[in-house]
Amino acid sequence: METIIQSVFSGILMGCIYALIALGLSLIFGVMNVVNFAHGNFVMLSMYFTFWAGSLYKIDAIFSPIITFPLLFLFGILVYHGLIKQTLQEHYTIQIAVTVGLMTFLGAITQLVWQARPRALAYSIVQGTIRFGSYTIALSRLISAIISLIIIMIISYFLAKTWPGMAIRATSDDSNAASLMGINFQRTYALAFALGSGLTAIAGGLLMTFQQVDPTMGLRFGLLSFCILALAGLGSITGLVISGLIVGISESLAMTFWDPRARTLVIYLIFILVLWFKPRGIFGRK
């Protein structure tokens, strides 16, 4: 029983970060109907940047988003204008091909630059554990989960209450109507893409406080964000968080009670089952 609770709890903590990762993907998909296959590699790239910032300039992982967020935001704008924009009017196969190309490219780059060896930061100011009775929780994981939730709340406030946020929402509801109402949809698209990519910087920084990074991770983060997207459908941030938790908990339980290697297997299984029985997601409205 204790192991179950411990496992579920660590799943919940991971789930919050996963929701943050998937939020970026969902934002992009919702607004411009493009699935960024490279999303997982964006997360991985952010983790490596965090590693660089930490090992070369002694910047703590938890503060690294101050540098990596603008970097990834800019990268998102570049990718949007360089690649995605050219394919918006094209056949869907071309859209997919371009982001798959980006995914492959980033995967190969990380292999070349950082090699297959896993990398981790030796030290973060957030460390140690907290004890609740007989349960122990790593402080870094707890704080990362809390920060993820705060960021998700900030984003949903941004989408609901600010002008650029409302432009994003309006565009994702109906891009034609939005452009009739004077929203520059090119700029909105670029903003959404940059924001979606910037969010991976925050997630990457948080993950690096307690995890190592290796070149296979892009695929795992990609898969779990696709799975969360499929579960959540579009349009509900609460649904996204709940889906993140479902994925986090399932993964954690699988690692505890089955086999640590089975984590991706379980996520994939959920992914297929959702597409099979609930193709519009559990919380989706579209």
Binding site: G222, R261, L265
Partner: peptide
Amino acid sequence: GIKEVWYALTTSALVEILKVAFNM
């Protein structure tokens, strides 16, 4: 009515999943 992109997404992760499964 299911968008083509979901097939692409599903297959893009399938190979690595099978690698894990056959290792286990």
